[in-house]
Design a protein around this nucleic acid. Structure first.
Lengths: 192, 192, 192, 192
DNA sequence: GGATAATCGAGACGGTACGTCCGGTCTTCCG
DNA sequence: CGGAAGACCGGACGTACCGTCTCGATTATCC
């Protein structure tokens, strides 16, 4: 227009409450009815946020769920008792608990992946702290410098992901004990 | 009323060509446009088979895709050179090739899981030969009897699945070498 | 596909009951809640027909309503008592009744027009029988051959449409009597 | 809406330029993309006026368009040559030009009607000067006192509205000549 | 060979969710 | 303190896909 007027910088601010309500509703619904029955309409209804607003901030359903899951996960706390083997076991047990928090973790993971590189980045972001934690634990252990710390941690996480997320099998504490001992035992108790 | 008439056994026979055409079309489409853009209608159109016929033989889309994937995978050939470590590496490399055959393996896996227990059984069926192969290879190695053969094989497969399917990372031959050496090295070169 | 199979001409037949139910539901809703509150979803729900089926047979809401209106209108019966003036009056009164059948005829007409040429063709189709009727009535009257029969009929219909549809005014029987007498009176009672 | 106004004393004065810009933008858009594709957002964007400001002055979209149309229409000038028949023809020709100014006049009319009584009042306001003009012209003609002046004028306007707005037909000068002669000819040339 | 059955291609159908669009209201900040 | 900027709710839109359901035509088997 011609006369007077405000420049940019104006405009209503994004409602943080709406953002929070959406993620909360999404997470509740995920728990209650499972991924494939969660609907954008249902999220909108439950959160009291208009569907249009959902799509203003998230490109699609998978993105909302991803965000909700990430938000809902407790921050990863790395145990530090000094006993590397025990810490690793505890950390993996915690990861296991996280991965079984939602019934159909593999469906959720598939949904994330379906968003392409962005989705996989989300997946990496979610799993990265766990890897870092294991690496830190192993870093505190008296291992030879050439020990493949990262790869070991990856194989542990892989074991858990593979059995629990992919195959929905049950991992026992014993399994974790043996798993952690596997690469380290050669170092601790050299032979049989 | 009971005596007369033709009894069962009559009727047109199932067309085996239709079955083959469906799986071929499904696999092509999976390669070309990715899981979530494959539709039953598209499979029907491409294969020249009526949609109704699809549903006569498969309960749903995920089942068709699962079958198509299973069919398309080369039969698992377990190497048997006698060198357990080399065989394990070769076998894992082959698995790696299989898992990267379809761009979005994790989406497919998620889709399978979304079918519930039946889908996970399919997933297990597909992965079981690989596990069995590794177990067989390890069984031929000079390992102490209490060595956790199955768990070791699972951690290997887990490592590959986790990095390649979940995170879409690249696994190098070196990675595989280190991975396989990890649990075994303590046995071969007892101490430092 | 390869072997066996049916040729074209097959396929489930269009369900005539669905077609009928849609138009009935649309007409009911039009009467009950008015054009702009009629919704494709509501039509679908009321008729028990899937929304997708609506869009298979009609391009949009306006087309459905147009069809419903056309269907609901009683066939135009041209009176033929021999008294041209009386017949014309009766015919116009009937038209008037038709046009006030739906509260907001001009909204409906606007909706039809919004479909472009196709919609205007529908409008013409609906009004054409009324014009033809008046022309036929005038054709039976003892008028000089150069009398502008069609134009007269159009001016009569125009009068009714303009006042009743556009302005939502009330037309009295007296109005109609005077209207019809207007162009004819010069012929019947030559001068004043 | 027309005048509206700034209140007493304090505060910034209402910007008349904004008012003008809105109506100009609305009218341009109406010409360019047609009624149903004109949106309040587009009017706001084109005019540089905030949407909120639109709704401060006009109750809804139809009102803005109505105002824009009314503003854009040239003031009705009633011809007064003394020749009633010629004047009537000229006046109707001018009306015809006005009604065809916007492609989809019936859509606009429908939109106005959709506002209920208020909208129809707008419609009447727009058309009233034309009716008054014709009545004035007929009032200057040497007609018998009982001649239905208003009804005649209405039938003329109705003829034009019906054919041009409703059916989007073309009206020729000849049509108008015959139309006007119709009710009057009986008076001028009593019989055949 | 004729009746009986099962299969197939074609495609309409009910249902459900998607992602978009727009009308109209409300909030924030700038000049 | 008026107004531009723009987020927000509500609700309809038109599309896509799933899995079911007729059709009519096409084989096979059995009597």
């Amino acid at each position: 227009m011609a006369a007077g007027g405000a420049r940019s910088g104006a405009g209503r601010k994004r409602d943080p409450e709406a953002h929070r309500a959406v993620l909360a509703a999404a997470e509740e619904l995920l728990n209650e009815i499972g991924y494939h029955r969660v609907t954008m309409d249902r999220i909108a209804e439950r959160s009291g946020v208009a569907k249009m607003t959902l799509y203003r901030w998230w490109p699609n359903k998978a993105a909302v769920i991803t965000d909700a899951v990430r938000e809902s996960l407790a921050p990863v706390a790395v145990p530090g008792t000094g006993d590397a083997v025990g810490d690793a076991r505890a950390h993996l047990a915690a990861l296991l608990g996280t991965l079984t928090r939602y019934g159909d973790a593999s469906v959720v993971a598939g949904a994330m992946s379906s968003r392409g590189e962005a989705g996989r980045a989300d997946l990496r972001d979610i799993l990265a702290p766990w890897l870092d934690g294991l690496v830190a634990i192993l870093g505190r252990a008296p291992l030879p410098p050439e020990f493949p710390v990262v790869l070991t941690a990856q194989s542990w996480i892989g074991y858990v992901v593979y059995r629990v997320v992919f195959l929905q099998e049950v991992i026992t504490p014993d399994d974790l004990r043996i798993l952690v001992d596997l690469p380290v035992q050669g170092l601790r108790e050299p032979a049989f």
